[in-house]
Amino acid sequence: MTEIIISIFLLIGGALSVLGSIGIIRFPDVYGRLHAATKSATLGVISIMIGTFLFFLFVEGIFVGKFLLTIVFVFLTAPVAGFMISRSAYRVGVKLWDKSIQDDLSGHMIHEKKQTQQKVKT
């Protein structure tokens, strides 16, 4: 019974990782790709880690805290990484997809640029 549950966790993790990779190829621009990369990869890794943790706990009888720590750190780092990549991509000037509808950030960026220019002058 435990083996079935462990295999389900591992299979879900593997499937999510594969789907996330397909998503990275299929989405049209950087920002869309980050959606696939942050979400699917996070849950995929977490699911595999839970499966491994359960395997060591029930089959081998060892409590391995490292796996739980891995889950915590993946949870913490994945959104931050997505945030930093998208932020720097926008600042470097990577274009949005042609069919994008709205861009509220461009006005903010122009405003920010003006302020820095003024600071340089004074």
Binding site: H35, P79, F83, Y90, L105
Partner: peptide, 11 residues
């Protein structure tokens, strides 16, 4: 926000 459906915080 980053981990919810369809949204990713940027700046």
């Amino acid at each position: 926000i980053s981990l919810t459906p369809g949204t990713l915080s940027m700046d």
